[in-house]
Design a protein around this nucleic acid. Structure first.
Lengths: 122, 122
DNA sequence: TTACTACATGGTGTTCACTCAAAGTCAATA
DNA sequence: TATTGACTTTGAGTGAACACCATGTAGTAA
């Protein structure tokens, strides 16, 4: 697959895909003899995984570290697991915060609804 | 209350509090004759509200708009409600995305656990 | 009066995560 | 053959949201 196809498929710009590869967020993508990127299953898998993690706000830096460990092979399994657990903790916390705000927004909206109803019945 | 007390109370820097006021994220705070900020109940309420909304990632821009509408009085109630509903929609979506990632992380971690167990029993 | 502290303003710097521009290569098409 | 269009790299630029700094002043303690 070309970069434009991957860009299309996952809804990311080509610039972002090149950037991800450049900084090590995605292991280096295979090339055609001309030097043009030719994404295979493996690379696509990484793209999809990183997109998912980034969409949840995991920092680029941390994901780079994860990819780096992954490339070092099975001896880094414990470190990778640790990294994932730490990130999940942060994520859990952020979700909890967001749910609190969600509830607060809901109640504020309900309040506006009530005001409207009061206005109508007056 | 002084800015340092408010900063302490809500866990935000004085710089952030001044920044929020400057860009209109918080209605202007009353001052002592000397020009020093003297936060009252009302201002503290805004600080707390904005901190909550920001912690969930609502954009500064949108919150500025909300404050602007609020200051225009009751004729903007409908607009404010609309704004809150839109932001809640975005938040709901964002939370759903993050929960998907949360589940994915959990499963990945479980996978590492399984590998360990396999290694132990071998 | 001097010293000290907390505050003020205005302007610049930083970080994160891209995003774009410039200049060049390569393959296919008119 | 010439041109078009997609791709390449390197490096600089952008925007959001603060963080930091220099300089100045009000209020208080010794």
């Amino acid at each position: 697959m070309t970069i434009s196809e991957v860009s299309e498929k996952y809804g990311m710009t080509q610039d972002t895909l090149r950037y991800y590869e450049r900084v090590g967020l995605i292991p280096s993508v295979p090339r055609k003899p001309s030097g043009v990127r030719d994404y295979d299953e493996h690379s696509c898998g990484w793209v999809e995984f990183i997109r998912c993690m980034r969409s949840a706000g995991l920092p680029v830096e941390t994901l780079i570290e994860y990819v780096r460990l992954w490339q070092e092979g099975s001896k880094t399994k414990a470190a990778r697991k640790h990294l994932l657990i730490e990130e999940k903790k942060r994520l859990d916390k952020r979700i909890a915060e967001m749910q609190a705000t969600q509830a607060r927004l809901a109640s504020k909206i309900a309040h506006y609804d009530n005001m409207n109803r009061v206005a109508e019945t007056l």
